[in-house]
Computed example of a mutant assay.
Amino acid sequence: MAEAGAGGFSNRYPSFYGPEGRLVLVDSALEAVNRGSTTIGIKTPSFALLASHIKPARPLMEPTEKVFPVDSHVGATGSGYIGDILQLIDELRLEAQKHRLSFESPIDIGSLTKHLGGYLHNYTIYAVRPQAASVIIAGADQTGVHMYQVDPSGTYFRGAGFAIGQSADSALDVIQREYSADMTVEQAVQLGNKAIEKALGERSVVETGVVTAKEGKFRKL
């Protein structure tokens, strides 16, 4: 019985890891993210901005929402399979609500990100399909304005500029060249639109949201 169990595990093992030790299913999820909508995040000490390309919808269909309020002080956007993105947004909202009920205060952005990273990491441990979505989280808490990117593996990064989705490298190049820590929200909106248009090679419809240190509230523009 033990041999059969060991053999069963051994037979499944290659489905997790490739020849170079890479997680095959996570790599596939990242490929799905790279085919998604071009999505960017820009943060300065005074605000954080999220922007995502809205792909044209079929006739008589409304376009899909791309930037989402999570709690009053935090929002998120993502790229990849929209069903997976929506599930991750719901998970973020649920964790934020649990924190408010338990501690009667808004959750800090780092803890919220860490929770989502752990949630996604669990999909890499068991024989299930990882979530094919990367998420950018932006919010303000008692320590300031923060922005994180969380990948399908559960790995998360903190920074001032992110780009995910289709032609993300081109979009990130624009952000890196023109980013300024003292830019205004209006300038960041223009930079976000420019980065997305550069990545796609055409003028695009972009949905945008912002949270400022002064207001501490996330709102869609």
Rank of each mutant, 00 (worst) to 15 (best):
T77K: 00
S72Q: 03
H73T: 09
S105I: 05
R100C: 02
S46P: 00
F47E: 05
T77V: 02
P45F: 05
G18E: 13
L86M: 11
R22D: 08
A51W: 07
Y17R: 15
I82W: 04
S37M: 05
Q97H: 02
P19Y: 01
F103G: 13
E20T: 15
V24T: 15
P19R: 14
G21K: 11
V74S: 00
S46R: 10
P69C: 05
N34Y: 00
H73K: 06
S46Y: 04
E62R: 10
V74D: 00
P59M: 10
S102P: 03
I85C: 01
S72K: 11
H73Y: 05
H99P: 04
E65D: 07
D27E: 13
I85Y: 00
E31D: 04
T38S: 10
L25N: 13
S102Q: 15
Q97W: 01
S37G: 13
G75Q: 02
R100H: 05
F16V: 13
L25Y: 10
Y17K: 08
K55W: 03
V67T: 11
T44M: 09
G75N: 01
L94N: 08
K98F: 07
G78M: 00
S28E: 08
L60D: 07
R93Y: 01
F16M: 12
P45G: 04
I89E: 01
A96K: 01
P45S: 07
A76T: 01
G78E: 11
T44Q: 10
S37T: 15
T38Y: 07
G80L: 06
V33T: 06
R93T: 03
V67E: 06
V26L: 10
A32N: 03
V67N: 04
G83H: 05
